[in-house]
Structure formats: structure tokens, C-alpha cells
């Protein structure tokens, strides 16, 4: 059973009612088909109303939905011949980041993304998608490899943040993230980042210094989680809903602010309702993006990234 989110409850109630009527029509000798048709029309309208007017907090919940598709799901639907490559060649292999080479539309790409687990056991192995420094160093190693072989890089962002822990600090979490930002700025191949779930702060940005940044409609990208912001600003984590609105963390908000390039449409109710259809929406965006970027020279790609990030920031002078 897929978890039902609070804002979806009216839809679910109506769906249950329709099912009940259908069952009743079949078992008893009463014809309710007119009512059913009416209710189905109402359901369609209700879905439209709810899903097209989602509040920021609703989107946060969809972004955190336990069945929300992960990097691996998109790799499966978008790529062929995926070969996972492990290890940073320094210290370890971080399962919170999945990475490798694959064919996308028949052409080689390097693909890197945060990877959450699907259940508790896998989440322990993958540390809930929160990388340690070795995860970022593995990502950078593969980016350099992609640069050598002149393949585009696609990054999928889906993390609550880089892991805050003793071991991570000892091995230089800050340095690992910082190094990626600087090195990504200089990559001579196209880099595209897609936020597919939660984009949590520096841990997300460390694979996000891209030529094009896209976001799934119900994903978020922020300097801190709504809960964290609420507890810092108002000393009350339960005000997360208000924080989610105030912080402007949803894809439509970030698009308005000019931070991201495209909002990728989601299937009604969120990507988890139909992963294949969602992957196809993403495929279109990626192809458009790549077609544009592969024609640029290495210098133009670097310049493009430079001006993109140089232009972010608001001030008076």
C-alpha cells in the first residue's frame, strides 16, 4: 500500500466511494452507472484542483514520499548498458552515491546520483542517501574520467544533505564538497544536474555545479530543511510548514528566481505514481539540454557555467 499524503485524502475518499458503488452495482440489482459517471467526473476535477494547486508543504511531502523514484530507477528507465563503478581510490566506496557509465539514447554518458534505500536495511547501507567525503570523491573521480573520454555528465540530486558525523569530519567533508564545486566549474564536458527529490544544501550542490539545472516539479532545493530553518529562525521545528513557504524551496519558486533552467512536469500526484511516464518526461528535457550543450566548445561550456553562477545573488549598489 502506497502511503497517502494528507492533502490527497479527499481524492482517496472519493475513489473509495466510487469503488464501493461499483461493487454494489455488481452485487445488487441496482443500476448506479449514472452516479458513478458523475462521481468520476467530479474526481477528475478534484484531482486537477488539488494537484495543480499544490502548496509548498504538499510538495515537500511528495519529495519525501518513501516510494519516490530514486536515481537507480531513472537509470533503469533511461539508460542501457549501465555499468556501476565503485570507489574513490582513496578511502572507501560510499553507497550513498551511485555512479557509472551507460548509454543514453545510444550514446555514452557518465551518470552520478545520490541513492536512498528502499527499506530500512538498504537505507542503513546507503546511509539514507547522505554521503560521506568518499562519496563526493568518487563522484569527482568519475567526472574527471568522463572529461577524459569526452562524455556528458548527468547528476541526479536526491539527498537531505551531506552526512554530519565524526568520521565525515575527520576525512574532510567540507574539503570534499568544496573541491567538487571548484573542479566542476572547470569541467570541459557538458554537465546537467536534475533535482529528483530533496536537494539538501551543500550535500546537493556538490554534484550541482552544472551547465543546466532541472528540477522535478515536486522536488525541493534549499540551503536547509524546512525543519532546520524553523528551529533556527523561530526556535520551533513544528513551524516547518511556514518555513517551507517562506524559504522558497520548490521547483516553481526556484524557476521564478532564475536559479534553475527547467521545471520537469510530474505525473499527477507525484513521480511515484508512474515511474516510467516520469522517466519519459525527464528524457525529453535531458535530450533538449544535451542537444544544446554538446555543440559548445570546452571553453564555452566553462564560460557558460561561470556566468550562470556569477549572475546568482541579489543586492543593491
Amino acid at each position: 500500500m502506497v502511503k497517502v499524503l494528507p492533502f490527497e485524502e479527499p481524492i482517496v475518499q472519493l475513489k473509495t466511494k466510487i469503488e464501493e458503488l461499483k461493487a454494489y452495482t455488481e452485487s445488487a440489482d441496482v443500476d448506479m452507472s449514472v452516479e458513478i459517471v458523475n462521481l468520476e467526473a467530479r474526481l477528475e476535477k478534484l484531482e486537477q484542483e488539488i494537484y495543480e494547486n499544490m502548496e509548498p508543504w504538499d510538495r515537500v511531502q511528495v519529495a519525501r514520499h518513501p516510494s519516490r523514484p530514486t536515481t537507480r530507477d531513472y537509470i533503469e528507465f533511461l539508460c542501457t548498458e549501465f555499468i556501476e563503478l565503485h570507489g574513490d581510490r582513496f578511502y572507501g566506496d560510499d553507497a550513498a552515491i551511485i555512479s557509472g557509465i551507460a548509454l543514453f539514447e545510444g550514446k555514452p554518458i557518465t551518470i552520478i546520483g545520490h541513492q536512498r534505500g528502499l527499506n530500512t536495511k538498504e537505507n542503513i547501507k546507503r546511509n539514507f542517501g547522505s554521503p560521506h567525503p568518499e562519496g563526493y570523491r568518487k563522484a569527482l573521480r568519475l567526472m574527471k574520467q568522463a572529461e577524459k573520454f569526452n562524455r556528458p555528465i548527468i547528476c541526479m540530486i536526491d539527498t537531505k544533505g551531506a552526512y554530519p558525523g565524526k568520521a565525515a569530519e575527520e576525512r574532510g567533508q567540507s574539503e570534499a564538497i568544496a573541491r567538487n564545486l571548484v573542479e566542476m566549474a572547470g569541467l570541459k564536458v557538458p554537465v546537467i544536474s536534475v533535482v529528483i527529490g530533496e536537494g539538501g544544501s551543500g550535500g546537493a550542490l556538490a554534484i550541482g555545479v552544472a551547465n543546466h539545472i532541472h528540477m522535478l516539479e515536486n522536488s525541493t532545493y534549499s540551503v536547509i530543511s524546512p525543519e532546520g530553518a524553523a528551529s533556527i529562525l523561530w526556535k520551533d521545528a513544528s513551524l516547518a510548514k511556514q518555513a517551507a513557504e517562506a524559504m522558497k524551496i520548490t521547483a516553481p519558486d526556484l524557476k521564478k528566481m532564475g536559479i534553475i533552467d527547467t521545471v520537469i512536469k510530474e505525473v499527477y500526484g507525484g513521480a511515484h505514481k508512474n515511474i516510467e511516464a516520469q522517466a519519459n518526461y525527464m528524457r525529453e528535457t535531458l535530450i533538449t539540454s544535451l542537444k544544446e550543450l554538446v555543440n559548445l566548445t570546452p571553453e564555452e561550456l566553462i564560460e557558460n557555467r561561470y556566468s550562470k553562477f556569477k549572475n546568482i545573488g541579489e543586492f543593491n549598489e
Binding site: 555499468i83 557509465i101 551507460a102 550514446k107 555514452p108 569526452n150 562524455r151 535530450i287 544535451l290 554538446v294
Partner: peptide, 18 residues
């Protein structure tokens, strides 16, 4: 099979055009 696949991913000439 796997190594052949890796070689293929690195030598396919289709990569040049999108």
C-alpha cells in the same frame, strides 16, 4: 562480456553527435 561492454562504451563513435 562486461569488459567488452566497457570497451564499447568508450569507443562507440556515435557519441559525437546528438
Amino acid at each position: 562480456e562486461k569488459v567488452a561492454s566497457i570497451v564499447h562504451l568508450h569507443t562507440t563513435k556515435e557519441g559525437a553527435k546528438w
